[in-house]
Simulated scan of single mutants.
Amino acid sequence: MLAYQKWLKNNVNVTVSNKKGSTIWEGSSKKAFITHEIPSGGQLIQACTIDLYYYYSDAKGLPGHKFYSADSNCGGTVTINK
């Protein structure tokens, strides 16, 4: 079971690291719908098989900023620091 969990983490997940200096929200669509909060200095593990966007608020419908393309860094870390 532990070997499977390690394989899963390294093959279908990406770690999102927030180094912006402020809280951001992360989601998988151009406009905010379902988001996950990432505080400054925080991290979130997300599926690597989808495009990812960040937002400056969790308000529904806000435009997002694409920072990750599906399947581009599975098992790795993406840092948001703009």
Rank of each mutant, 00 (worst) to 15 (best):
N10C: 04
I34N: 10
F67S: 03
K82M: 06
Q43C: 00
Y68E: 01
G27T: 07
T23H: 06
W7Y: 15
P63C: 05
E37K: 10
A32S: 15
T77S: 14
L2K: 07
V12A: 11
M1F: 12
S72A: 14
F67C: 01
D58G: 08
N10V: 02
T35N: 06
S17H: 04
H36A: 12
Q46F: 06
I38A: 07
P39G: 06
L2M: 11
N73P: 03
L52C: 02
D58A: 10
A47W: 13
I34V: 13
I24P: 02
L62I: 11
I80N: 08
G76S: 09
S28E: 12
P63A: 10
F67G: 02
G76Q: 10
T79K: 09
T49D: 15
T23V: 10
H36V: 11
I50W: 09
D71N: 15
A32W: 04
K6Y: 11
Y55R: 01
K30L: 12
L44N: 05
T15R: 06
G42W: 03
G76W: 13
A59C: 03
L44T: 00
Y53A: 02
Q46A: 13
H36S: 15
K31I: 04
G75Q: 13
M1I: 06
A47I: 12
L8P: 00
G64A: 00
K82I: 04
C74S: 13
E26M: 14
I50V: 15
N11A: 05
G42I: 01
L2V: 10
N81E: 15
K9R: 15
A70M: 13
F33R: 10
Y54I: 00
I24G: 05
W7M: 07
W25G: 01
A59W: 07
E26H: 00
K19N: 04
G76C: 10
I45S: 12
L52I: 03
K9E: 12
P63S: 12
A47V: 13
S28Q: 11
Q46H: 09
Y55G: 01
I34S: 11
K60T: 10
V14I: 09
I50D: 14
